[in-house]
């Protein structure tokens, strides 16, 4: 069996006296799509931010591509190939679609490669090419999410972490976003996905983790999780 690309062991995150993550264990293998689900405030975003060096790690270890990354600055983590598409998109509103995408390739110094990645993103989201000169802030919610994901792909990451990409979108667009995730998966991208649209997300995912109040309560193959009583009662209301 191949080694995991991303390993989290006993991760503890505290904000002041408040402990948000109480020792998380998680692995992502190359080519896998892993989904983390959980209620609001469970600590899903905190988990991804801690991996990115954007939340304070007070215990445990994080290894990426065989090397420890806990304690590194966010920009250093990015340049190693771990990219985070933040919750709420965080686009550079006044800048154009293309400028946003190019900023996603900041760590890529080779203009040739930037151009190739740009073409790949436009192939994935033809709508963005049509609107390449439009200010990101003036796009629709669905289009903005395309920019956010596209921007995350621009550096050619080894692992793409998506934080609630369907947040605030109409049901039809939620499906579209999840289809995009499925397409990326089919292209071989390694994905760590956080979603509230639990059922659909777990159907796409190879494996899933359910997070409750900062602890992993269930983990396993996506479809098994969907059958799990604890998860069904807690998150699906079934």
């Amino acid at each position: 069996m191949t080694a995991p690309l991303l390993t989290v062991r006993g991760l503890v995150v505290r904000y002041g006296k408040l402990t948000v993550l109480h020792g998380i264990d998680l692995e992502v293998f190359p080519g896998e799509t892993v989904c983390v689900v959980g209620a609001n405030g469970a600590g899903k975003s905190t988990l991804l931010k801690a991996i990115m060096g954007a939340a304070p790690v007070s215990g445990g270890e994080i290894r990426f591509d065989g090397k420890p990354v806990a304690g590194l600055a966010t920009e250093e983590v990015v340049s190693r190939g771990l990219v985070y598409v933040p919750e709420g998109r965080m686009l550079f509103g006044p800048l154009s679609v293309e400028e946003n995408l190019r900023l996603g390739a900041y760590v890529v110094r080779d203009e040739q490669r930037v151009q190739e990645n740009l073409e790949r993103v436009y192939a994935l989201f033809p709508r963005l090419e049509e609107r390449r000169h439009q200010a990101a802030a003036t796009l629709s919610g669905g289009e903005q999410q395309m920019v956010a994901i596209g921007r995350g792909l621009m550096s050619g990451p080894k692992v793409l972490m998506l934080d609630e990409p369907s947040l605030g979108l109409a049901p039809k667009l939620v499906d579209e976003v999840l289809e995009t995730v499925d397409t990326l998966k089919a292209q071989g991208m390694t994905i760590l996905l956080v979603e509230q649209t639990v059922r659909e997300a777990l159907e796409i995912a190879d494996r899933g983790y359910a997070l409750q109040s900062g602890r992993i309560v269930v983990s396993g193959p996506g479809r098994d999780l969907l059958e799990d009583d604890r998860l069904r009662s807690a998150y699906l209301g079934l």
Binding site: M52, E75, V78, V83, M90, L95, R102, L103
Partner: peptide
């Protein structure tokens, strides 16, 4: 451009790998 991005949203800029 990286400077502009930092001005607009420093946290987002860091997520792009920009040393803010």
């Amino acid at each position: 451009k990286a400077l502009t991005a930092t001005a607009l949203n420093a946290q987002a800029a860091r997520y792009m790998g920009i040393p803010t």
